[in-house]
């Protein structure tokens, strides 16, 4: 039987002290994605847009590259912290950079 090791709040069990501290203070560098149905999604804490089209939006989210495939996608709001997109989302793909 495997014993469970208690780690910092929200941090993976095998993460280092840096990740544990950032997780404790909720300072994670990962992007936060909110998908509402398949009609809209919000990406917070992203780095930039690498590809933009009505069928495909590729977002640089630091360690990951997130690819949204869909139809008639349109950026409703774009700020440094937040990206709000509407349209019909078919799939979301994560790629390790």
């Amino acid at each position: 039987m495997m014993a469970l090791k208690k780690s910092g709040d929200g941090a993976p069990p095998d993460s280092g002290i840096r990740e544990k501290v950032s997780a404790f203070f909720e300072l994670s560098g990962d992007a936060k994605i909110t998908i509402i149905g398949n009609g809209e999604f919000i990406v917070e804490n992203y780095k930039g847009i690498t590809e933009y089209g009505s069928d495909l939006i590729k977002i640089n989210a630091g360690k990951l590259s997130i690819c949204f495939c869909g139809k008639n996608m349109e950026i409703k709001t774009l700020t440094q912290e937040l990206l709000y997109v509407t349209g019909r989302v078919c799939s979301v793909t994560f790629e390790q950079r």
Binding site: G48, E74, I75, K76, T77, L78, T79, Q80
Partner: peptide, 15 residues
Amino acid sequence: INICARRGILLRDVK
């Protein structure tokens, strides 16, 4: 688009 976002220039309804 990225530079606009970084410099705080708000773009809306980007098509």
